[in-house]
């Protein structure tokens, strides 16, 4: 199988990685770069636990090859906070009680941040629609939606 040398930035840090063709962005982040905050929940683009931003837009990192990300800017959950200072969405979800087991949380945070970036004042319906690809089994979503609303107010 062919290998590819790629260059990209992860949370602002430049990285060079030698990846096999079939390596997904998810696998590279978790197994090559130690970014284990991004979770593997289904490997089929259905659960959203692996959501990261590629060039500012959220994608399922299990559904994109690492080699396709050559030259891209990636933001993972580890990149949402700035040297320990948390993003409003992170503060808001702690405050609202929207975290339980925490496994869906990184994907939810990235998808929510991406929503707020493109729509600083989303309606409840828009929030629900934007997070429909992020499955959560613990919370019933109530407090997650509240967190996004609260974060929009904070910005």
């Amino acid at each position: 199988m062919a290998y590819h040398k790629i260059t990209l930035t992860i949370n602002g840090e430049p990285e060079q990685v030698d990846v096999p063709s079939n390596m997904t962005l998810l696998k590279m982040l978790r197994e090559r770069l130690g970014k284990t905050g991004t979770k593997n929940g289904c490997a089929a683009g259905e659960c959203g636990a692996c959501t990261v931003m590629v060039n500012g837009e959220p994608v399922n990192s299990c559904m994109i090859l690492a080699v396709e990300c050559d030259g891209s800017e990636i933001v993972t959950v580890e990149g949402l906070s700035d040297h320990g200072s948390l993003a409003p969405i992170q503060e808001a979800i702690m405050e609202s009680g929207g975290v339980q087991c925490g496994f869906c949380t990184p994907g939810i945070l990235i998808a929510s941040q991406a929503l707020l970036n493109r729509n600083p004042n989303p309606s409840e319906a828009e929030i629900r629609e934007a997070l429909v690809g992020n499955l959560c089994r613990c919370t019933g979503y109530v407090r997650i939606i509240e967190a996004v609303q609260a974060a929009a107010q904070m910005v």
């Binding site: 683009g45 959203g48 959220p58 994608v59 399922n60 994109i64 998808a111 690809g133 992020n134």
Partner: peptide, 9 residues
């Protein structure tokens, strides 16, 4: 179609 994330691909 599917979800916002998936529609980005």
């Amino acid at each position: 179609v599917a979800s916002y994330q998936l529609r980005n691909r």
